[in-house]
């Protein structure tokens, strides 16, 4: 097995505790993995931003203070911090289109999902891509993450083509019109899946539609929390 990130061969340490267990199919080597940062406490209890003390971060306070956005998104859970190594990996995965890279994070994604959401009967909804972007990239990164998690996935949203989010400032992002459309009603609580949580605008726009469309509660789950 080769590490998906650095292409080196992964050597498994054989110890007494794993001597008889089947070899793990981890796709990232120890060295690359040690360069990643897992999100740890204390963090914002809504958006999972790393903080000095537990509580709610300023951005989330701003969201919650507005009547129309209050309680739209129950909680965001993220797995990794957006450090330099992660930026490199995400750029290669998303923008260069190295689709298979996401499999490196399979175990961590499953573990964090189990920890936070295994009690509830959730429907996974990936954030959609516009048709144009989908044509360029060849895959939807949110769907790629969702399909690694053992839970039912349904693509009930579509997106109208617009500018790339990553090229905009926060103010521009928050004030944009809702880029999504809901295809069908939902009745179960929903877990939105995306690759990055930056300002939370995308996820809240999608959450708002889902709430209007019948979802009792909307959570979100992202690979990284940036900022």
């Amino acid at each position: 097995m080769h590490c998906l990130n650095c292409h080196e061969i992964i050597l498994h340490q054989v110890t007494w505790s794993n001597l008889f267990s089947p070899p793990s199919d981890k796709k990232i080597c120890e060295n690359c993995f040690s360069q990643l940062e897992r999100i740890s406490l204390p963090q914002c209890s809504i958006c999972a931003r790393p903080m000095d003390v537990n509580g709610i971060c300023q951005d989330c306070e701003r969201w919650e203070s507005e009547e129309s956005w209050r309680g739209i998104l129950e909680k965001n859970v993220a797995v990794f911090n957006y450090n330099e190594t992660m930026k490199g990996i995400v750029a290669r995965w998303k923008y260069r289109g190295d689709y298979i890279l996401i499999e490196m994070f399979k175990y961590e994604l499953q573990e964090v999902f189990q920890l936070h959401f295994s009690q509830q009967d959730l429907l996974l909804v990936p954030i959609p891509l516009s048709q144009e972007r989908m044509g360029e990239r060849g895959f939807n990164q949110a769907l790629a993450i969702a399909s690694l998690i053992k839970a039912p996935v349904r693509e009930v949203l579509t997106r109208i083509h617009g500018e790339k989010q990553s090229k905009k400032s926060r103010k521009e992002r928050v004030n944009t019109e809702n880029p999504f459309q809901l295809l069908e009603q939902v009745s179960k609580p929903v877990l939105l899946v995306d690759d990055i949580y930056t300002t939370g605008t995308t996820l809240r726009h999608a959450a708002k539609l889902l709430k209007e469309g019948g979802a009792p509660a909307v959570y979100s789950f992202t690979l990284v929390r940036s900022g």
Binding site: H7, R96, G97, D98, Y99, G138, F139
Partner: peptide, 25 residues
């Protein structure tokens, strides 16, 4: 190990992906 496939089954090269992806499509 430096080839992988996209969801639609098209095989792409991972070795030179930093120059933009080439695949069967």
């Amino acid at each position: 190990h430096l080839f992988a496939s996209l969801p639609d089954g098209a095989v792409y090269c991972r070795n030179c992906i930093m120059m933009g992806r080439v695949s069967e499509k």
